[in-house]
Every structure is written in C-alpha cells, then in structure tokens.
Amino acid sequence: MSTILLIEQVLNGLQSGVMLFLMAAGLTLIFGVMGLINLAHGSLYMVGAFAAAAVAGATGSFVLALIASLVAAAAAGAVVELTVIRRLYDRDHLDQVLATFALILIFSEGTRWIFGSFPLFLDIPDALAGPVMLPGGIQYPLYRLVIIGVGLVVAIGLFQLIARTRIGIRIRAGESDREMIAALGVDISKLYTIVFALGAALAGLAGALVGAIQSVQVGMGEPVLILAFVVIVIGGIGSIKGALVGALLVGLTDTLGGVLLPGFFATFMEPSAATAVGSSLASMSIYILMAGVLLFRPTGLYGGR
C-alpha cells in the first residue's frame, strides 16, 4: 500500500471521526447533565438531514439547508424534551431506553409517512464540489476537508462554550451536582431543554453534512447512533474530550481496518478467503477495540466514576 493511499485513508478516518463526534458530543452531554440515555438521538440526525434536503430542494441554497437542519433538529429536540424526555429524568434507565426506542419508531415511520419511502436528494454545493490537490500529490475531495474543518471548529466551540460561558458553567455544575444548582436559583428545567436542543442541533448538523455525500433516507440514524454509543463508551460517558478522542479512534479503526485487514490476510491466504475473513473481522474491529478498552478501563478512557 502506497503512502499516499494511506494518508488518504487516514483523512477518511478523520472525517468519519469528526462526524461521529458531532453525534457523540450531544449524547454524552445529555447523559452527563441529565443522566439520560437517548436512543432517539439517531432520529434527530435523520431529522436534520431531511430538513436540509427539503429546504435545499425548495431554495437551492446549501447554507439555508444547513441552518434548517440546525433549527429543525433543535426544535424537534426541544419539543421532544418538553413533552416526553423531561418525564424520564427521574426514571430508571430501562424506562429511558424504552421511551426513546418508542420515539425512534414514531420518528422513523412518521418521516416515511411525510416524505415517502424513497431516499431524498441532497447534494454538496457546487463551490465545494470536486477534489483539491494536497501537498505531496494527494487528491482529496474538498467537501470532506470542509467537513473535517467544520467538525473541528464545532469541537473547539463546544469546549469554549463549556469552559468559558455562563451556560457552560451551569452545564458543568449540573453534571456535578443537580440539587445544588437548583438551590442556587438556576432554572434547571430550562437548562435541560437548552442542553437537549443543543445536542439535537449537533446531531442534525451532522445529519445534513453527511446527508450531502450519503443518502438521505429513513433509518439512516440508527447505524450512526450505535457507533456513537461505542464512541462514548470508549471515551467515557459525560466527557466531551472522551467523545472527541473516542470518535477519532473509532473513525480511524473502522476505515483503516476495512482497508488493511483484507490485505493483511491476503499475505498468507487465498484472495477470496482473505477478503471474506478480512471483511468479517473489519466489521467487528470497532467492537473489539471497545472490548479491549473496557478490559483495562471499565469506565472508558476519560470516564470519571
């Protein structure tokens, strides 16, 4: 395998990693602050993608589409939080799992009801189409570089938000002691709604950004949701830093595993058998990674408890 190809694959792993981070950040924030496990996070990803596709179809503007994805996912998140989720904070995890599983059913089939069964169209804007030449003669799609950039900017922004701003202080306070900040007069239910909507907006943004290079269809959120779970288990639940590290690890393992493993087995096996074994193992690689991390750190890399 040439160096150029390897670098390109590392970039691909990074790109899928930062998108996973946008999903995982919301999940881990919601768990950290409210103690809630949200299976419906993948549905918010889907809502973002569908909103973007609908607006892009109507207006032709990708910027408007991205804004729509943020707004729609945040609004859907806020509505869900106000009607359903806030009844679940005091419940055990089992109830949270089931109620949010029910939300997936409603969101998925509801979306199909509204938009029909066929995938929707969402394309990258012309300005970002096509490849660019990177130093060293690597040709790489511009849009994917932009995605990496956007993901990193959002990550930095999120760290700043939590470290520097008033709302960030409240979020951190909420993570460590819920009763205390309520006692200090912070409107805790409003804070929860904001955090949930923020997490939803990040998921929606990821959905729209990825939807432009993949397909916008019902059920697109669940595979990403499960990967995001793996990410936050590896990173440590509640830790934004853990989510970032975990997301990059998972993105790189998944991409490089799929490319390198079949080749590795081909060095001592027949090509077709090597492809079969290699692809099978590659599809399991991130779960093996997760099991490995848990053996040594049961609460993940940056987990507290």
Partner: peptide, 29 residues
C-alpha cells in the same frame, strides 16, 4: 454509507473503469 476508503483504492488501482453493485441507499452514497 461511506465509500471514501474504496474510492481511494479505485484511484490508486490504475483501473480504466468501475463496476459496482450497491443497491438502495448504498448506491446513492
């Protein structure tokens, strides 16, 4: 849903054409 890795391999392979069978959403992506 992400084929960046495969496309990179296609680019590096020196092929003159591509045949794919990827039904449904996979093909769109």
């Amino acid at each position: 849903t992400d084929y960046a890795a495969e496309i990179a391999q296609i680019r590096a392979s020196g092929a003159d054409s591509v045949f794919f069978f990827l039904p449904g959403g996979m093909g769109i992506s």
